[in-house]
Design a protein around this nucleic acid. Sequence first.
DNA 1: AGTTGACATTCCTCTTGCTGGAAGCTTTAG
DNA 2: CTAAAGCTTCCAGCAAGAGGAATGTCAACT
Lengths: 131, 131
Amino acid sequence: MNISEAARLSGLSTKTIRYYESIALISAAVRNENGYRDYSERELDTLRFLQRARSTGFSVEECRQLLDLYLNTGRQSSHVKSLVQEKIARVEAQLEQLQAMRTTLAKLAERCAGDEGPHCAILDELADNEN
Amino acid sequence: MNISEAARLSGLSTKTIRYYESIALISAAVRNENGYRDYSERELDTLRFLQRARSTGFSVEECRQLLDLYLNTGRQSSHVKSLVQEKIARVEAQLEQLQAMRTTLAKLAERCAGDEGPHCAILDELADNEN
DNA sequence: AGTTGACATTCCTCTTGCTGGAAGCTTTAG
DNA sequence: CTAAAGCTTCCAGCAAGAGGAATGTCAACT
């Protein structure tokens, strides 16, 4: 099948598929006579796997490792699990950061009158060295 | 004062300060005879403002707007407040996304044996079209 | 005076994960 | 036969700087 069909069936864009090939995340597709890339079911599976892993939040480099494990039948499931657990830890750290941000922003908003006047507690706060 | 002192006192790096100048987030610094940038207290205030706004989570473009309001004494505080409120909404959306990700990852991890065998529910899940 | 080390300057490349566009093929539909 | 759609490659750009090279300058020490 052509790249656009592979894209449609995998949920990736054609640009993304070519990009994945260019960074060697997937192996170079076979070409047929006209020079067009040709995808088999097997490669489609890989593309689908990537689409899922990416939308689950794994980075491309993490996907590279997962894909390695996915394709390697001699893997140990403990390797996969520890990858996922590390990922969870990173996500939780980011969550804490965002929550702190939200708290800060909410405090700022609360103290600003939000009227037509120029005085604004938000700007004061951002400008204040003693904060 | 030289750029490194301005950096030290504002909490930004010299690289960042030059970068902000290059994208016209701040106006070009005055140069003294040797060609070095020279910063006054007034400009230091602006740098500090930016440092705070960035670490509060505002993007550079958002900082540009905040700075505009900060320096414009004819501003209306409602403008500032609505900027902050929009930001809060974006942060909350991102929080939800991350929480969903964490949930998904936790479910994946939970179902994987994590032993020396090759079988792994995580990979199955990522590969499964029907998921 | 010379030298060393810590500053300063500009410019260029790299990062992440693509997306958009240009120029030029081929294939398909009318 | 022509026009549109689809394919190819390559180049540029987004965010927000970080890192480094090549070069210039300043202050201190000998």
